[in-house]
Each structure stands twice: as structure tokens, then as C-alpha cells.
Design a protein around this nucleic acid. Sequence first.
DNA 1: ATTATATGATTACAGCGGTAAACGCAAGAG
DNA 2: CTCTTGCGTTTACCGCTGTAATCATATAAT
Lengths: 122, 122
Amino acid sequence: MHITDAERKIMECLWQSHPATSTELAERLENATGWRQGTVKALLNRLLNKGAIEAERVGRGYRYSPGVSREDCVSEASQRFLARWFDGRLAPLVAHLSDHRKINPQELEEIKALIKELEDEC
Amino acid sequence: MHITDAERKIMECLWQSHPATSTELAERLENATGWRQGTVKALLNRLLNKGAIEAERVGRGYRYSPGVSREDCVSEASQRFLARWFDGRLAPLVAHLSDHRKINPQELEEIKALIKELEDEC
DNA sequence: ATTATATGATTACAGCGGTAAACGCAAGAG
DNA sequence: CTCTTGCGTTTACCGCTGTAATCATATAAT
């Protein structure tokens, strides 16, 4: 399942807090996107059709909830990205970013800590 | 500058070896993509228009070369990807992949080595 | 010089993505 | 009961992407 960029903004909202009505979502997104209600609703329908969200009828309207986890989406996107540019591997990305000074010392520390954890638990 | 997926395949060819004629490129891509010559040529023109490649007239045809480096494209794509999903930071990606067992031991070693290098040279 | 061939340029077209207007219906206001 | 208003559904439209056919032209072969 491929989530587009506009759809992703809706999903982020839902992952953050759900269920939510289309009106609530439109309000929450208004600021960041400037989208009209109709836009939000159209995107919700596309997400429904591809099974990325679920809708539960409540009175006059619906409550929407994510149908896929953010974790899963992130995994898919990461695999796609790494496959495209780095032969599917993480190390070359780290190498690239470090070559281009795109990693600051704090991040470096974080990653080092992560790796230590990984080693310990293995 | 945004390189689309089909365009990227052309670029990969050119980055790998250039300059190259459209015919050479079509031959090299034939296997991987099944594209006709016309398809390759159309993509080359789009890339020319957006300044991603350069063309040098030679006799009847052109020799094409990259106008942007792979490094730069990779940087852009990486920043975009990390911004979308990980607040622009690398550490959370590493954390995610490790949580989901998407890093094999060999990669872990590679990354560890990279980090050690980085530390040493600082 | 005429014909065939290779190369490039133009045009096409369907599908997807972003954005939204238009239309219809239900629920509350008077 | 009628009118307005909010929500949902349908339809629209443009630009981009992937893919290619078609047209034009220059070079090569006869």
C-alpha cells in the first residue's frame, strides 16, 4: 500500500489521535496545509478505498481511525528509499550523510548508544 | 530539482558511465526496463529541460552527461525522506530499523566502523 | 539523386495526485 | 412543516509521470 504525501498528512493526524471526524481533522490540518474541508474529505475517501483507514458511523457522520500503523508505513517507506538509493542497505546512507557532514555530534551519540544497546541484547 | 523514478534510472546509467548517446543508453536500459528508444529519448529531453543532464553535439547526435552529481541527488533525496518520516534526523531511522530487525549483523559492523572513524577524525 | 536508416523533436495519452466545487441529504431552527 | 446549514458523495480539473507513436530531418547506401 502506497501512501501519498498529501494522504500522509492526514495519516499523521490520525496516528497522533483517533478516532476523529472529518471536521476535526480539517480543523487540525487547516493551519499546516490550508486545505478546505472538501479536500480533507476527498483524501479520507481515497484512504478508505485503499484500506489505510477505517470509518465507524456515529450519528450523522463518521469517526475515522488508522487502519495501518505508522510503524508499518515507515518500514515500507524506509525499505523503498534505501532500495532506490543505497542498494537496500543502511550503512551506505550513514556513510553518505557523514561524508557530507549531515550528522551532528548529538546524533552521532544517539546512534552510538543505539548500537551499543543492540549489541548488548544480542 | 526533483528527479522522478523513471528519470532516475537514466541518471544511474549516466552516472555509471558518461558521456553516452541515447542509443547506448537505450541498449544499456533495455534489459532492466524494456523501454523503447522513444521512451529513453523523451526522458532525456525532460532531464535536459530541468538541467539534470548536459548534451554535447557530436556529428549527427548528442553525447549526454550528468549535470548534477549522484552525491547531490542522494543528499536531496535523503533529506526529503528523513524530513518526511523522522523529523529530519538519522538516529530515529536507525532506531526504527533496529526495532524491526531490519539490520543484519554485518551492517551493524559496518556502521560501527563508520562511527569509530568519524570519532577518530574529529 | 533517390531511397533507406538512424536520430532527434513533437505530440499523445492514460493514470495518479492535489485540490476543490457542486450536489444531495439529514438534522436542527423557527 | 419549511428553511438553513453542516456533512458526505460525486464529479472535475490540471499538472505530472510513464510510456510511446509519429513526424521531421540528416546521413548513409545504392
